[in-house]
Design a protein around this nucleic acid. Sequence first.
DNA 1: AGCAAACCTGAGGGCAGCCTCGACTTGATA
DNA 2: TATCAAGTCGAGGCTGCCCTCAGGTTTGCT
Lengths: 226, 226
Amino acid sequence: MDDPSAAPPGTDRPLRSDARRNREALLAAAATAFARDGLEAPLESIAKTAGLAIGTLYRHFPTRLDLVQAVFENKFTAWVAAAEEAVAADDPWAGFARYLEAMCELQADDRGMNDLASMRLPLSDYIDEQILHIRELARQAMQRAQDEGMLRADVTPEDLAFVIWSHSRIAAATRDVRPDAWRRHLYLLLDALRADSAHPLPVPALSEKELRQAMTNLGSGTACAE
Amino acid sequence: MDDPSAAPPGTDRPLRSDARRNREALLAAAATAFARDGLEAPLESIAKTAGLAIGTLYRHFPTRLDLVQAVFENKFTAWVAAAEEAVAADDPWAGFARYLEAMCELQADDRGMNDLASMRLPLSDYIDEQILHIRELARQAMQRAQDEGMLRADVTPEDLAFVIWSHSRIAAATRDVRPDAWRRHLYLLLDALRADSAHPLPVPALSEKELRQAMTNLGSGTACAE
DNA sequence: AGCAAACCTGAGGGCAGCCTCGACTTGATA
DNA sequence: TATCAAGTCGAGGCTGCCCTCAGGTTTGCT
């Protein structure tokens, strides 16, 4: 899974053994907490869960965002993989639909992932790259499904934000009651996206810029320094 | 001797003039704050906006819920009216669709209304009645549209929660960027609800009980005594 | 004018979460 | 084994919000 040796070249000297152990404990506790409570889970309770003092958490992760970053750094691979499958699928529509379902699964299982997907946070370049990559793949998957005539022609990649946002709320509401209820909503939405059910839409899609702004607005609850 | 304003037990005696004025100021400030920031807007800032001390707010409205109740008591009439129009419409599908749009409009204009619609709060009997009334009307409107064959047969009144929930997040995200962007999502969803675009749904609708629970879960952020 | 009840005020005590900092431990290295 | 930088600890200050209450003010009434 994770390489215990320091990842970035040059910058960091190796951690002391106890420090490395503690760092792992913090990451594990944070992963659990973020998954259950979202990215705003109290840091003090994360430290306590890890059996450490709050000061230690801050030593390892000076800001909440540093911790978020470290926890989710490697969790994007599944998302990228899903997007790659979509583009590679024989059946473009099926590939696209399967991609949306996989994406929603990732978010349904992890409130933190959900938060991450629905709002723009100032994260590491590495994660930003992955997100850009995912976007490009999704764009291609949509294009293929549109060329084939299955996906309605009047939706744009920015409209995928609707899927993410609506899923985020529905998953939050139903998680404890019927963990798979969101699938019903997603399948409804898929019916809406089929070309043969298309009726004119009343307003144009969000522009890329508007989308970015919208995601930033959502994130105003969480910290965002820098 | 017998003044009609003399306090009969059970009903509250009339407010002193300054108290009535202050009460109005509080309601106005609260309406603005709830609309802009949702039901969790800080009470202290509401009092300050009204030009009053926090203690005065608490005198008039001992709990946040009392204030919420008073602010929204009469704002449900528009919602009820929209539902009634739906049932009375000549064209059942058009009536139903128009109802959803009106409902979303109400929520898009007021974050507080949005919160109220998407989570179950312990409010006054009067409001509860109105909500029940709305539900019954919505059920009828759906039934009519289904009988007519326009609304797909496999959706239930509980599925309307999906509309509310997804709208709530999308409206929140786009409010400041493109206040009408939610219309695009709603029209997509309407396409999903048309009978002629129906494909099988993977999981059954929420039961009434599950729905109630789900709305309660969402509300855990806000206070809910009793 | 004088009075009592109704009303208003805002300082203050709680609580939860954030974050810092100086005193204390501990692992690695010579 | 001695040394000390690296690491850990947690009390405590800060903020924002909640809510209360003792004391001062206003209103309506006679």
